[in-house]
Write a protein that binds this DNA or RNA. Structure first.
Lengths: 233, 233
DNA sequence: AGCTCATGTGAACGGCTTTTACATGAGCCG
DNA sequence: CGGCTCATGTAAAAGCCGTTCACATGAGCT
């Protein structure tokens, strides 16, 4: 029988060989299951099959592990937002909408990353590289806002792009953290978080003078003059 | 000399006499200092001058204490919002603005309550009375939105009040949790959170067709047609 | 005066974080 | 190939926390 080379996953001798990665992975699992507060350093070690002291060879302490996860989260987040923005294609407004949806999707599909990034309670500016990653992610939203601001209808004052970006961020984050996650902190809603956010952003953009009633090419002529929140079904 | 009736705060014999209250107070101090995660049951007991087991006579466990604080927080929150709304005086829009400011003020001035309410990680629906308190607070925003919706300019479709209320809540919460607290999670801003939120709400309301450029009675005629975000100084 | 029950204590268990001294063996150098 | 070295892992221990249980105390009622 297979002995001494097969218990668990990949057998290992004294050295794990890939512990850092294994710990990050384990932490992700645990955080998504029990929240960033419930996550335990010792648990992660156990899950990786090492002693409780081993992780300290790779992370100064528990907080540093969480910060590492938050950092990776911001990197994935940035990549997701970049992809959603797609450089403003096919049109600026709908690409902008996609960014908002991507924000929610990330919060829902990567709750572990999301809570490490925004709900772990560790100060963003504790780690400069963490801060930088966070700013790179935000820069995507800012760039999108910049493009949108440039399209402001002539005659009206041009809104500051930075302010727009902060507004969009706060809306997305507000919706995500209040209503966004599957079952944690659930409150009843008359509509999906996605629809809620979409309507919010559209109304906001309209307040800035953007024409958001419908996409140019879509079949829209037969709709009654409805608000951006759609018609009551 | 005053002896045996005066050490520390109020002397106490075997029984504390007011432990539950003292624990809640101690927890508030600790949470505002070290966040809801850093708060420790044993610390609170120590601060109240009792043994670590004593709190269990008043709270089933640590979570129940935090839930109690969250509940009180929602109650104070409700009262603050009610006061800010002031039944829509002197006019609906500016009262609405005041509610937004009150939201931020609460987050800033009562960080312990705020984080117990929104960042402690405990499910809102764990405790029915907690849930109820939360809903009573939200009901204020909803009532305000209701009044606002009734003022929608004739001819335009009337926005659903519930949706408006959720939008306002998410904006306020987003700004408060991303930028609202003194030094925790600080990110640089080109403007104060209050101004940021005010502009956001005004733009949003304008997107719904409300005339928010200036208050009816105020001196407004000499302003240039600027956006709701004020003029660049 | 005496009883009772809410409230507080002390001790103990298990778990977590973190440190320290020690063990292992992978990679390199001659 | 032999041996050195240092990154990586272990065991043990200290200190803290949450939680429980048997027991002590005394406030308030009868």
């Amino acid at each position: 029988m297979s002995w001494r080379k097969d218990q668990g996953r990949a057998e290992r001798g004294y050295h794990h060989g890939n512990l850092k990665e294994a710990l990050l992975q384990a932490a992700l699992d645990l955080i998504s299951k029990k929240g960033p507060a419930g996550f335990t350093f010792a648990d992660a070690a156990r899950m990786a099959g090492v002693s409780p002291a081993a992780p300290y060879r790779h992370f100064r302490d528990r907080d540093e592990l969480i910060a590492s996860i938050a950092q990776r989260g911001f990197e994935q987040f940035e990549s997701l937002l970049t992809q959603a923005w797609d450089d403003g294609r096919p049109d600026t407004v709908s690409a902008f909408e996609r960014v908002g949806k991507a924000y929610l999707a990330f919060a829902r599909e990567e709750p572990a990353f999301y809570s490490a990034m925004f709900e772990s309670g560790l100060p963003v500016d504790s780690n400069p590289t963490l801060m930088a990653a966070s700013e790179r992610a935000f820069a995507i939203i800012r760039a999108a806002a910049e493009r949108l601001a440039a399209l402001a209808p002539p005659g009206t004052p041009r809104p500051p792009a930075m302010m727009m970006a902060l507004h969009i961020w706060s809306m997305s984050h507000g919706v995500a953290s209040l209503f966004g996650r599957g079952d944690a902190a659930r409150r009843k809603l008359p509509m999906s978080p996605e629809d809620l956010l979409e309507a919010e952003v559209l109304i906001y953009l309209r307040g800035l003078g953007f024409l958001t009633d419908r996409k140019p090419g879509a079949a829209a002529a037969d709709e009654k003059p409805a608000g951006p929140w759609g018609k009551p079904k």
